[in-house]
């Protein structure tokens, strides 16, 4: 029987196509699922926005729901200044959501369970947000690292702490998503192993497995939501500085 961590193995599905810096690049199962997420989400939204009917059909209602959800999130957390970042945040949410949900399909692969993927996304958000803040406020941006109204002699302690706190953001952002997805899938696999090993009594872990699968679906959606809302909060910090 396959070990609980085998489901996360990256497999080359094609012979190496080309190499960058000594690493041969091939199409992997992770890449296939990322493409599936992009094609699936783009297909859903194109199908939903194509007709533009007054009374939305099922797919259009779904697309509108996604749109309104993210639009409201940005309005509540960033304000009107965040409007122009809507396309990016929406793409981020849909990509993460589809990645998490596609991983719930049996025999699927969860690309968000790899820290390489989540840390890359978090790093792009972090660098982007820092850049936006720097361009918008110039050197005044660094006032983010000193709480307003604190006595000046506390600066040598407060500034390093705030700096480390700021630099820990991409780590917490990426680890949260990666850990949640990995833990959930390992748990499912371990419990599924018990079903086979216990024979007749395997009904008990099977029942638990059904409940955990529902919980995992919830976690999949919730983590995509949390990832996106934290990006909004960071963007708000950079745009408005406290």
């Amino acid at each position: 029987m396959a070990g609980p961590l085998e489901q996360f193995a990256i497999q080359n599905l094609t012979p190496p196509l080309f190499s960058i810096g000594g690493h041969s690049i091939a199409v992997t199962n992770s890449a296939i699922f990322m493409m599936a997420a992009v094609v699936g989400s783009a297909g859903l939204l194109l199908a939903g926005s194509g007709k533009g009917a007054m009374i939305p059909g099922r797919i259009q209602a779904m697309a509108e729901l996604f749109y309104e959800f993210i639009a409201n999130m940005i309005r509540d957390n960033v304000g009107s200044a965040g409007k122009k970042y809507f396309p990016f945040i929406f793409s981020l949410f849909i990509f993460t959501l589809f990645g998490n949900i596609l991983g719930m399909i049996p025999y699927g692969f969860t690309f968000t369970s790899h820290i390489a993927v989540t840390f890359f996304m978090a790093a792009v958000v972090f660098l982007g947000v820092t850049m936006i803040g720097l361009f918008k406020h110039g050197l005044h941006f660094f006032s983010l690292f000193f709480p307003h109204g604190a006595p000046i002699f506390t600066a040598p302690i407060l500034i390093p702490i705030e700096l480390v706190s700021y630099l820990s953001r991409p780590i917490s952002l990426s680890v949260r998503l990666f850990a949640n997805m990995t833990v959930g899938h390992v748990l499912l696999k371990v419990l599924a192993g018990f079903v086979v090993a216990l024979g007749v009594f395997g009904v008990v872990p099977l029942a638990v497995l059904v409940a955990i699968t529902a919980l995992e679906l919830l976690v999949a959606v919730l983590q995509a939501y949390i990832f996106t809302i934290l990006c909004c909060i960071y963007l708000n910090d950079a745009l408005h500085l406290h």
């Binding site: 480390v164 706190s165 820990s168 680890v175 949260r176 976690v219 919730l222």
Partner: peptide
């Protein structure tokens, strides 16, 4: 609630790791 609990746990670890 689950999300908030998870957030706090990860926040606690990531700060130490970053530092």
């Amino acid at each position: 609630k689950l999300g908030v609990g998870m957030r706090v746990a990860v926040e606690l670890v990531s700060g130490v790791v970053a530092g």
